[in-house]
Amino acid sequence: MKILVGFFALSIASLSFANANAKFSERKLGNGLLLLTSAENNNITNIGVLEVGNKVILIDPSPGKDRLRELEEIIRKSYEISDLHILNTHGHSDHSGGNDYFLALGATINEADFSSLETYPVISHSSSDKIFYHIESNTIFTGDVFSTNWHPTFYAGGVDGFVHAIDTILKVGRENSLVIPGHGEPAGKDVVKAYKESTLRWIERVGVLQKAGKTVDEMLLDRKLQRILRSLNFTNRPQFLPRSAEVRFVERTIAILDQAGDS
Rank of each mutant, 00 (worst) to 15 (best):
D60Q: 08
E73G: 02
D217Y: 01
P238I: 04
E51S: 12
G207F: 10
R223C: 00
L87W: 07
L15Y: 13
L87T: 02
N31H: 15
I228T: 07
L35K: 04
D217H: 03
G53S: 09
N110V: 09
G173R: 05
L170F: 09
S116F: 01
N99K: 03
L33N: 11
L34W: 09
G53A: 05
D144C: 01
N42T: 09
G188I: 02
D60I: 13
N88H: 08
S263A: 12
H151M: 14
N236D: 15
I123Q: 15
E204T: 10
L117A: 00
G64A: 06
T215N: 05
L257R: 04
L10F: 10
V52D: 03
L58Q: 01
G184Y: 08
A9F: 02
V49I: 15
E136Q: 03
A165W: 05
L71T: 07
S25A: 14
S16T: 10
D190I: 01
D190F: 00
R243P: 03
E73N: 08
L221K: 07
D262S: 13
R230M: 10
A13Y: 03
K65D: 12
E80S: 15
N31W: 11
R248Y: 05
G48E: 06
R223Q: 02
G213E: 11
W202E: 14
L105Q: 02
A20S: 12
E80F: 14
K55R: 13
A260H: 04
D222R: 02
R201E: 15
F102Q: 00
S177Y: 06
N88M: 06
S16L: 05
L68Q: 13
I169K: 00
M1C: 06
T89I: 06
A255M: 03
S11T: 06
N88V: 05
I135M: 01
A39L: 15
N99E: 05
T89F: 11
E40M: 13
T108I: 10
L4R: 14
F154Q: 13
V163P: 00
H85C: 15
K55D: 12
T37V: 13
S116E: 05
L241P: 09
T89E: 09
A107M: 04
V192I: 11
I86N: 03
V192E: 04
L4I: 11
F7Y: 11
D100H: 03
V52H: 06
I140W: 11
